[in-house]
Design a protein around this nucleic acid. Structure first.
Lengths: 197, 197
DNA sequence: GCCTAAAAGTGCAACGATTCTACTTGGAGG
DNA sequence: CCTCCAAGTAGAATCGTTGCACTTTTAGGC
């Protein structure tokens, strides 16, 4: 995926970054996000607090170390979809294939739990997704052949990126994802009332 | 709209709150959000910093003093829509009537500019909107007669609340709002390419 | 009218995240 | 081998935010 760093210098830099991220994640999982200070992390990784901020933009970013891969995958799903497939179907397919399986991974359960139970992290995660709106929207626009900032394409991107937040906590995530894509495909209509006994 | 406070105590409390909000807004507009500290605001309002936080949950909240009225209006628009009108139409109507006119107000221009040009405030504003998802979704669900956490209703609420973020910066906001509601009503389809000369 | 408990406000110290400054170090490349 | 730059460091400073112990105000029962 990402090419390994070339020079020794770059390797060391990457190693430091990794050490920090690892230390942070372990401490967070063990004691909770709010209970761990930047100093604790710096000490555990054996660096100074200043170094932590040289590598990460802030405390929250320590938790979401490599989640930008998801963005590229999303865009690739649109760009390299099998020919004849609609953009909406490609997105539906990709979301169904990728997102629930990630959450199902047992190791990820603790991580997910950490994020869900920490308001600051939930907020950060949401912003992270919506920050992808521009690039996903541009990719869609490209495929369709319109301006990069086309409103309809931006809207679709935004709505698709809302899905994780909407599907969160549902018993059947796949069904939820399908239902939302149905809305996006055919338009919204009042859901049918449950039968009255 | 909001009933005036009854007791002297409540009146004084409201006055203090207002003094703080006013001082904050003026200073922010004058010097920029990041250039003004909580202590500056407290001094200008002639209160202690602790008092500021007794009235507002944080620095960002000082900027969005009374924006929760918008939430109630939104929900009222759904609940008290003329009979026979669909929920989607009621929302479209309300958004068209309310939101662009607010932004058009000349005094609001500086305010809008302040928010747009300060990343922290943009992020906060977005969170604020999406925080209404639950209540708006519940209102819609009520009208339709399904569970309060019905997925389709939540999704619609969320999408509608995305509109300000999507329409931001468009030349013709009304058209943008219409276009987005068309997507929500009839489903998304690839926008037509502009004619090639 | 008087008393009292609760609410509102105060002043200040403390805490944690983040940033700044001046300084050291180690590897890359001539 | 030498030099330069990026990476790292220590430590102080800033700023939002909270906690604490204390004073003032006032609503409401006596």
């Amino acid at each position: 995926m990402t090419v390994p760093p070339v020079s020794r210098r770059d390797r060391k830099k990457a190693a430091t970054r990794q050490a920090i991220a690892d230390a942070a994640l372990q401490l967070f999982l063990e004691h909770g996000y709010d209970q761990v200070g930047i100093r604790d992390i710096a000490d555990a990784a054996d660096v100074s607090t200043a170094t932590v901020f040289k590598h990460f933009s802030g405390k929250e970013a320590l938790v979401f170390d490599q989640d930008q891969d998801r963005e590229s995958e999303l865009i690739a799903a649109v760009r390299e979809r099998p020919c004849g497939q609609s953009i909406l179907d490609a997105l539906r397919q990709h979301v169904l294939d990728t997102w629930p399986s990630i959450e199902a991974h047992p190791q990820a359960a603790a991580f997910t739990n950490l994020v869900e139970s920490t308001p600051v992290l939930r907020a950060y995660a949401e912003r992270m997704w919506t920050r992808y709106t521009d690039s996903l929207g541009a990719a869609i626009a490209d495929e369709v052949g319109v301006d990069h900032d086309d409103l309809a394409c931006m809207a679709l991107a935004r709505f698709v990126l809302d899905i994780p937040a909407l599907a969160r906590g549902r018993q059947d995530r796949r069904a939820a994802v399908e239902a939302i894509f149905d809305i996006l495909t055919r338009g919204w209509e009042p859901p049918s009332k449950p039968p009255v006994p």
